[in-house]
């Protein structure tokens, strides 16, 4: 993959540091690493809680995809909005949500972001600009375009990021949404997290073009392919797309090539991919390890700093789970609350 080669080249040439080292201060970069750990440990904590029966239903883990969530959200403000997917925990955290309230939601508690009505698949934090994960593949695509229409009409200067997976690129909603965003030149960035599989069906078997980004040409917008496991590459593509969007030049499609370590959901027996393939991504291309070594290489952090981050994240996760456990359940008497807006 060309993106991987680019990454190698950037490392050798110290004078020409990768994008994020030129563009963001060191504290921001350390915070990005912390966010990646927060996502990873949040999902491990959620998985463990699920195994222990504290969380019911199902969940879709994005472990292995942290660089894309964090790289995309790095330059966004709380006013910039995102729509997310069924694999959306990472997006929610990267956008700034509090893991305690996320855990509380997963535990079905009233203190959760959705007051126990949404769970993992509808996790959202509107206060930090996350309009919500979505249980329908492609469901968020037109909604993101609508949010971008609002931004344009109200002249807010904000951008909207629409996360979706490789599976969604074969939904009609994808094509309708990209077309409308393009004809109206809306400030939206379509971010495809291509983890290789829509549930069990590989991209090669499901999609007629080799890259999802190739679809962009049909809608007259730039289609950019990046190594979705390299924070700087993701952030750089996102930065260019954001500038373009804020300048009124319209949407961009960014394809982040990445991989999910876990199965599609909790019912997955992993019969459609090999152990070797999973192993290779985990050991050779882990996004957190790669980012850590790069941060150390450029002197942004040392081993002690990394350990401090891991420890503080561990504590935050522990406290989050504790908060969720101790929070009260919603009252059954309020079952119908929030179906409609309460009116005076």
């Amino acid at each position: 993959m060309s993106a991987t080669a680019k990454k190698g080249a950037a490392k050798k040439d110290g004078a020409n540091q990768p994008f994020i080292y030129r563009h963001y201060d060191q504290e921001k970069l350390r915070d990005a690493l912390r966010k990646m750990y927060l996502i990873r440990q949040f999902e491990e904590g959620a998985e463990e809680s699920y195994m222990r029966g504290l969380i019911h239903g199902t969940m879709h883990l994005s472990i292995g995809q942290e660089a894309s969530a964090v790289g995309i959200c790095l330059g966004l403000t709380d006013e910039d909005q995102i729509t997310s997917t069924h694999r959306g925990h990472g997006h929610c955290i990267a956008k700034g949500a509090d893991v305690s309230r996320m855990f509380a939601e997963f535990f079905g508690k009233i203190t959760g972001y959705c007051r126990g009505r949404g769970g993992s698949m509808h996790i959202a934090d509107v206060s930090t600009g996350n309009l919500g994960a979505n249980g329908i593949v492609g469901g968020g695509l037109p909604i993101a375009v609508g949010a971008a229409l609002t931004a344009k009409k109200m002249k807010t200067g904000n951008v909207v990021v629409c996360f979706f997976g490789d599976g969604a690129n074969n939904e009609g909603a994808f094509h309708e949404a990209l077309n409308m965003a393009a004809i109206w030149k809306l400030p939206v960035i379509f971010v495809c997290e291509n983890n290789g599989y829509g549930m069990s069906t590989s991209v090669a078997r499901a999609t007629a073009v080799p890259n999802i980004a190739d679809r962009a040409s049909a809608y007259a917008m730039p289609g950019v392919i990046v190594d979705g496991n390299v924070v700087s590459d993701v952030a750089e593509a996102m930065h260019e797309a954001t500038e373009r969007a804020r300048n009124g030049e319209g949407p961009t499609l960014i394809e982040c090539k990445t991989y999910r370590y876990r199965g599609h959901s909790k019912s997955d027996r992993n019969r459609y991919r090999t152990k070797e393939e999973i192993e290779e991504w985990m050991t050779e291309r882990d996004p957190i390890e790669a980012f850590e070594s790069q941060l150390m290489e450029f002197g942004v952090i040392d081993q002690k700093g990394i350990e401090d981050i891991r420890e503080s994240v561990r504590k935050e996760i522990e406290a989050g789970i504790e908060f969720a456990k101790e929070s009260p359940m919603p009252e059954v008497a309020n079952l119908e609350k929030y179906v409609y807006t309460e009116q005076a």
Partner: peptide, 9 residues
């Protein structure tokens, strides 16, 4: 969907 997204925002 665009109408829904515009309404929510």
């Amino acid at each position: 969907g665009v109408a829904v997204g515009a309404a929510v925002t």
